[in-house]
């Protein structure tokens, strides 16, 4: 599957079925800090991902002092 890691402006290719939770652990991403999106659909951490999927990891943490 193709994983677009938006905040790091990179794309990684991951092989094999796995759950969202496992994918985030592999990529070292704290699940609190992202939403996981397939198409226009939000996914929960137990959602199963397949090889043909394109997944976006969308950061939710904004910064600045305002």
């Amino acid at each position: 599957m193709k994983v677009m890691i938006r905040h790091q402006r990179r794309e990684v290719e991951v092989r094999g079925r796995r759950r969202v939770r496992e994918l985030l652990v592999e990529l070292g991403v704290n699940p609190e800090s992202v939403l996981v999106i397939r198409g226009a659909q939000l996914l929960t951490h137990d959602a199963q991902l397949g090889d043909d999927d394109t997944i976006e990891l969308r950061p939710v943490v904004s910064g600045g002092i305002d």
């Binding site: 992202v34 939403l35 999106i37 226009a40 939000l42 939710v60 943490v61 904004s62």
Partner: peptide, 10 residues
């Protein structure tokens, strides 16, 4: 924060 982003997307 994660919920605010989820709300916007939903």
């Amino acid at each position: 924060e994660r919920e605010a982003a989820a709300y916007a997307i939903v």
